[in-house]
Simulated scan of single mutants.
Amino acid sequence: MPSRPWRAAATALATVLLVGSVAACGNSDTGDAGNDGKIVLGFSQVGAESGWRTANTTSIKESAAAAGIELKFDDAQQKQENQIKAIRNFIQQKVDVIAFSPVVESGWDTVLKEAKDADIPVILTDRSVDSADKSLYKTFIGSDFVKEGRLAGEWLVEQKKGASGPVNIVELQGTTGSAPANDRKKGFAEATAANPNLKIIASQSGDFTRAGGKQVMEQFLKANPKIDVLFAHNDDMGLGALEAITAAGKVPGKDITIITIDAVKDGMQALADGKFNFIAECSPLLGPQLMDLAKKAHDGEQVAPRIETEETTFTQDQAKAALPNRKY
């Protein structure tokens, strides 16, 4: 009968279409790079708490575009639970590489184990974690925060080496439990221990924000009639503190010596103007290095477990010289 060949052809065609459909679904599930062949990088940012963080985000977005990497970007708004949720979403989306700047140091083992089980390499940027199992992430790229705190403390020791009486220091800490806050405090304390006249009389978190720096500095000034030095864990808190110091009728940079960390443009301008006295640099321009590491991690290449960024320090004259070409 003439209908049988037609039925056979229709069956064969349906089989071909079914096989093609299954194959296509299989390709999309690999999550390798999508149909356009791009590497897909899932990145969870701490938030937008400072000028440093804004510059860091810009560097990452621009570098991803330049490198031809598809970036899935998430803003955790300084909440660890948001970051963990974002990482799990990246795992479900089967991205090729995950990178994130941890809000705090602790509490990451479970979600990092999930990424490892999914065979997705993880890169830590700017901040590290305290996981004992180093195999949970591929590498950590960022600054040596202890060194930054130590450089700030060493400068102060040198400046105050002739002081005969006590030098009262107040400290604006970063986000409680974060790597930069913990490490910068440690480095500064280690360095200033060389001069027993240097005394930290108050230390509190300003959460790396200008508003936090201003609010806590106001409290410091009310509680402590004699403050000689302010050590702020980042420029933004120092800039907020400037407002409180000025409102209290004191001259920043003269009545109170101000030391900060980061060297963003606003901080460098304050240093050039004599309102800050010293800045230890912490570069936010990690984007190009991150994209290079993402490609290597995706290709299974070996990378160093710790990659330190190159940075320097600034005095007033050095800030004046650097400002015209400052990128952040």
Rank of each mutant, 00 (worst) to 15 (best):
D144L: 07
K138A: 10
G149R: 00
G149A: 03
W155S: 06
K160Y: 10
G142R: 06
G149E: 04
G162W: 09
I141F: 11
G153I: 01
G162H: 14
Q159A: 06
P166W: 01
A132H: 07
L151W: 11
D144A: 10
L136E: 15
V129L: 11
R150D: 11
F145A: 14
G153M: 02
S143H: 14
S131Q: 13
Q159R: 13
P166D: 03
D144E: 13
Q159W: 02
R150H: 12
Y137D: 02
S131V: 08
I141L: 14
G149T: 01
V157K: 08
E158A: 11
T139K: 09
R150T: 10
Q159G: 01
A163T: 05
A132G: 11
W155I: 03
R150C: 04
S131G: 13
K134L: 07
A152H: 00
S164F: 06
G162M: 12
V167P: 00
G142I: 05
P166K: 10
S131A: 14
K161Q: 02
G165N: 11
F145P: 02
L151F: 06
E154C: 00
K147V: 04
K138L: 08
K161A: 01
A152Q: 01
V146D: 12
S135A: 13
K160V: 05
S135Q: 14
G165E: 09
P166R: 03
G165P: 03
K134R: 12
E148V: 03
A152E: 05
K138H: 09
K160A: 07
K138E: 13
V167D: 00
S143C: 15
S131E: 08
G153N: 02
F145D: 15
D144H: 08
V129A: 15
D130F: 03
L136M: 13
V129G: 10
K147S: 11
Y137F: 04
Y137S: 01
